[in-house]
Amino acid sequence: MKTFSDRLKHARLLRGHTQEELARLARISQSAIGSYESSLRQSSRSARKLAQVLKVELEWLETGKGSMELPLDGYDLSNTLPPANVAEPSQRAGRKPRPQAPWPFPNISPSHFDALTQDERNMLEALVQTYIETAQARRSLKPRRKQN
């Protein structure tokens, strides 16, 4: 595969995503994905997000050099996910499972997270859960403006 557009489309199809799904997961427009795949746009600043979502090496996606697949010793955060049915509702029969979202913390590398002990991860999870619950409660308590 000689071009960014070829590599992007190959990786997207290999991972089973539609253009719409990839766009949603990478938080860019579907038309941008279509433009990249049809060579109307060249690789972009979005390449890092696309590589994360597609779980491919960034250098391969951008240049075609190296291996497409991430190394086997790459980040596996599956042991940090909650048990089934805790965070996500169960899948309906016959539906394809949802792909995992890209790493959500732009200022924290996965290697820093991986270096935490299990107790530290549990504390971090409790802190984030408390923050989310507090933010949601505050939003529901905000007074609504009267409409005339």
Rank of each mutant, 00 (worst) to 15 (best):
L58A: 04
G64L: 05
D73I: 04
N79D: 15
G66K: 07
A84H: 07
S111V: 05
F113A: 14
L81P: 01
S39H: 12
R27K: 09
S38V: 02
E125D: 13
D6V: 11
L22N: 05
Y131R: 09
P89F: 06
S43C: 13
P99S: 06
G66L: 05
A101S: 02
Q19Y: 08
D114N: 15
A101C: 03
N79R: 14
P110E: 02
P110W: 07
A137D: 14
A47H: 06
I33W: 10
K146L: 10
L22E: 07
E59T: 09
E120S: 15
Q118G: 10
P82L: 01
G94M: 03
K142H: 13
R92H: 10
S39K: 13
S44V: 04
A87R: 06
H112W: 13
N107A: 12
V53C: 03
V53R: 00
P106I: 00
G94T: 06
D6E: 14
M1C: 03
P110Y: 05
S44D: 15
N107C: 09
L14M: 14
A126P: 06
T18D: 07
K65T: 11
M123N: 09
P104D: 00
Q91E: 13
G34W: 13
W60N: 05
S35E: 14
K146I: 05
D76W: 01
